[in-house]
Design a protein around this nucleic acid. Sequence first.
RNA 1: GCGAGGGUGGCGGAACUGGCAUACGCGCCGGACUUAGGAUCCGGUGGGGAAACCCGUGCGGGUUCGACUCCCGCCUCUCGCACCA
Length: 829
Amino acid sequence: MQEKYDPKSIEPRWQEHWAKRDLFRAGNRRDAPKKYVLAMLPYPSGEMHMGHARVYSITDVLARYSRKRGFDVFHPFGWDSFGLPAENAAIKEGVHPAVRTPKNIASFKADVISLGISVDWSTEISTSDPEYYRWNQWFFLRMLERGLCYRRRARVNFCPSCNTVLANEQVEEGKCWRCGSTVIEREIPEWAFRITAYADRLLEGLNKIDWPERVVAMQRNWIGRSDGLEIDFAVSGRKGKAFRVFTTRADTIHGATYVAAAPDHPLVMELAPEEKKAEIAAFAEKVRRAAKEVGEGAQAAEKEGLDTGIRVRNPFTKKQIPVWVANFVLSGYGTGAVMSVPAHDQRDYEFAVKYGLPIEWVIRPADEDEVTQAAARKLAEQNKAFTEYGFLFDSGEFSGMPSEQARLAIAAEAQRRGIGRPAVNYHLRDWGVSRQRYWGTPIPIIYCDRCDPDHRGIPVPDRDLPVVLPDIDVKEVLTGKGEPPLAKVASWVNIKCPNCGGPARREAETMDTFVDSSWYFARYLDPHNDREPFSRAQADRFLPIDVYVGGPEHAVLHLLYFRFWTMMMEELGLCGISEPAQKLVTQGIVKGRDGEKMSKSKGNVVPPREIIERYGADTARLFILFAAPAEKDMDWSDEQVEGQHRFLGRVFRLVQGALPKVRDARAGGPPDELRRRTHKTILRVTQQLERLQFNTAISSLMELSNAAADYQGDPGVLRECLEILVQLLSPMAPHIAEELWEALGGKGEFSLLQWPQADPALVVDDAYSIAVQVNGKLRGEVQVAATAGEAEIREIAAQDPKVAGWLHGKTVKKVVVVPRRLVNFVIAG
RNA sequence: GCGAGGGUGGCGGAACUGGCAUACGCGCCGGACUUAGGAUCCGGUGGGGAAACCCGUGCGGGUUCGACUCCCGCCUCUCGCACCA
């Protein structure tokens, strides 16, 4: 054993040992239950940052702990190696992504290894490898066959700086999620996945998985299912024409005093009086421009609108009401038109007030007695709509009904009259996957003018997969401007049509890289399979992921696509699960010394490399795990890092100092206090690791180590304590644990050695110290035998001199005895 | 506005299903060893008070023998969504 704790020599030694023996390969324990622990796929930047270190520290503790608990643990690793950063770097520096990426991977991988993460590297994958992305193409074709993938002309979000289309989810407050440029709108054809077909399944699945409430709520919100009624408002004087609106509040229909349509609603221009058309067109243009500026989804400006001159009839009141166009009505949601009920919708209310449109009150709160327009108008004095459910009035035959009931009754009536039908809307949109970039999966489609004149797209036959990215001259092709880069590679784009043999062109666009990360977790199971994405047998053995760890920033992007993809794979018969990850852990962000999120732009990053270099991987891991609970944000603290390093130093010296005494001792001995504490610590740490409470697990180990340092008794007891301490520490600080285990002369392959078990006889005490309260205030503490009954405990407590003083001369009204906890005397006065 | 999660010493944070608030670590104070110590070890450390004691988990109420924990009403912070009809 070394004299001094020197992680620099200890850590590489054990890392080599693990690699040489291939100890972390999954599948070696076929008869054991499996455990699939996974960290989210990283983009391979050249250096691992603290956020990564945090994720991997967490998954590694779980992996190492589970291995010792006898599980067949699968803890794979890979690279999200396609994507914009590599391509942008290529544009800037002229280095081909295919050249740079492997270097970055090698460097990042070295960091992961130096952190001591116990990965099964035999299944490592890179998404930019044709061996991987050919299956993206395969999935694309399968979805095409099933109508889950289709070509659409869509108004899309376009980032002028990245020169690419963005998915809805990639637009944040009108800005590109990646570069922050203002997103503009463009209409171009694109390929899309019909994720909306799975909206309800995605919603229902949320009930069966153990994910943070926050993420579940975000997904629910994002899917945004809304149940309502579509109803037609017939256009006056134009037989057969009607504005169809969507509403969730059919009960308020008698209060609908106008219809508001999106400015680009097709019926508006068709039906508006000639003299209005120019004005309407101008308004629509203005709204479109404003939308671009503010960005879709951002806080809208003042509500604005314009009377179109069109008149429709409220199907229930039969009154003639105007149709307005309004900037707050979205053409992409519902029917693109709404019935406006200013009395009972805040938005409609504001609009009505601004433009002097009538406000008809038809719902009153349950507790109001008078069923009059005047009484309800009191609400108007508060200057807001009454948007809650209540009771109907001035609503014909429906008056008096509660809202819930009226909704259904009015819907039924509308249906009977053939002017309405139940409808469901979702906020969720289909997933546009076309990207005008080079560094991604080529879309396996061919366009042929002769046999496919409409350019609907001819699928590349399976036998021709993969469609491999052509090698390119970076400077010529990756200019960051103009048409998609692949379109410039004539030798690649121009091919023969697989149908007619005539001249044809390949689809020059590539897939969104979120495709790559949607199913990688399954490819890990069978990464070199060239007949199918992965084998069913492997899927049945290892899926789903038991614990999935990553940042909460992926709550609606990756984590929704990945669930969708799994459902699709289940339908294809590739796996028997519909949810990819049973448990999700979203770890908090790591803040820098300044309390701000670590980021290059703020210049406050502390690279893990630096910490590992200076203190070793074990210290880095321990600090990361100790500083805060896994799900919470954590603050960087140089002092705390030192503290963890000191702790490891103390443990090292503890074992070193004890060695002469314990070397020849046999673990065990009398059931003294240290021995009991040791066994209780096994229970505690085990429970804490099961609950992912790494910070308290470490503090329990500190307590045990402190107790061991003070111990002067039996060498066998001390030996057992040290062995167990080292075992319990090993998932968190594996290198020093190996080293100390070796020093103690421990036998066996340590990282596969069984987790210690507490001796039940040693975890129950024969005497307890319990608190004594008088009227709920702590007044003393007494020792009580474990066998003592309530009466005896009460007696002992009352005799405690301090307590006796408080009880003297008082009447004890009541005594509460909580075994093992406390005694409370309730006295009068 | 809607949704989720927080508010406990100087700091990070403990406290299982209501039962000794502040475990563990950091920092700070004092001491030991030392030429020296930013190494290591020992002791102390919520506030007030000489003490007995009193007060203390964002604020105000409530339930209870007993509340950081449960209930009601607020304040405040962080994150996400936000004209979704």
